[in-house]
Simulated scan of single mutants.
Amino acid sequence: MLQQVSGEGAAVEARDLVKTFGDKLAVDGVSLAVPTGSIFGLLGPNGAGKTTTLRMLLGIIDPDSGTRSLLGRTNPLDAASEVGYLPEERGLYPAMVAREAIAFMGALRGLPIREGRRRAVAMLAERGLSEWENKPIRTLSKGMAQTVQLLGTLIHHPRLIVLDEPFSGLDAINQEKLEALIRAEAAAGATVIFSTHVIAHAERLCERIAIVAAGKVAFAGAVDAARDRLRPIVRLQTRAEEGPWRSALPHEARWTGREWRFELPPEGPEPLLRALLEHDAGIETLSIERPGLHDAFVAIAGAAAAEAMGQGVPA
């Protein structure tokens, strides 16, 4: 289901995009809308069609059918100078020093090379990385080189930032730094789209998401709307193991060996609470937990998609 965001409120729109490669249908009718100034996540397993979708949105490849608009242009390439794109396949000239690599990426988007060098020096200094300035790319670690390419993606102050699997290959500390950078760019007014197969990144960062599986959008909308598709989960521990109060538990209640777990009934917790108190169940703990995005993803895209992402299925 596509929740519409159109007109001046959308930085990116796509309607019914289809793309085939030979006899493989890679993208099958994808529709989505990305509000201006938002952080938008494209979430799904490898091979789901995320990268192909991003490339069509950016005009790197054309769809077989469907329409798209980017920053108000129906031809995405007309907006290229206002876009920063970090592809999944990283690529820098190994002999270039970091400063020149960053400036060169800005020049590809129309930034004068002298201004690019000035900004590159400043960006590295802001992050305490001035010692990288004259280091050839081939001497940098994978994570360091990825940081250089990310800075080159941002050097021309793009209105739209598109990051394809940006967390891949980063350790936990650098993932946190990247999350902070994404938040800062959005706070400064940029629209950020990133693809990922790690649900936690999308849950922490995104206001809206599209869940992609087998080339289709299984869900597009607010993260809260995805989570609200599932009822809250009740976790209950009692001192008494048996008693008349047991009849108040929903029939699908599951005993885990130390607590009961079940979905909050439509009538709410009050009837259960009355039964527990009236029949001296001895409540030790009772919590009502809202489902996370992981649970919503499994419900929407299926357990097989979650397994393909290496995320597993909730216990």
Results as ranks from 00 to 15, higher is better:
T139G: 04
M123H: 07
M123G: 02
A98T: 15
I137N: 05
A103N: 01
L124I: 12
R127E: 13
K135F: 01
E133Y: 07
A103M: 01
W132T: 01
L124E: 10
A122C: 05
A120I: 07
G128E: 13
E133N: 09
R127Y: 10
E115N: 02
S141T: 12
L111A: 09
G116N: 03
P112Q: 03
R114K: 11
P112Y: 07
R119Y: 05
I113E: 05
R109V: 01
T139M: 10
V121D: 14
R99P: 01
R138I: 10
A107K: 04
A120K: 11
E133V: 13
M123V: 03
I137V: 15
A125L: 09
K142V: 08
L140V: 11
A125Q: 13
M123S: 12
F104Q: 05
E133M: 10
A103E: 02
V97C: 11
K135L: 12
E126I: 10
R114V: 10
R114P: 00
L108V: 03
A125R: 15
E126S: 14
R114Y: 00
S141Y: 11
V121Y: 06
A122D: 13
L108Y: 01
L129E: 09
L140N: 11
A120Y: 09
L108D: 02
A103C: 03
E133G: 02
F104R: 03
R127P: 03
E131H: 15
A125P: 02
F104L: 09
T139N: 10
S130H: 11
W132N: 01
V121G: 06
R138Q: 13
G116V: 03
E133F: 08
L111Q: 04
K135D: 02
G110L: 08
L129V: 07
A98C: 12
R117I: 04
R119V: 07
L129R: 14
K135I: 07
L129P: 07
K135H: 06
E131M: 04
R118S: 12
R127W: 15
E133W: 09
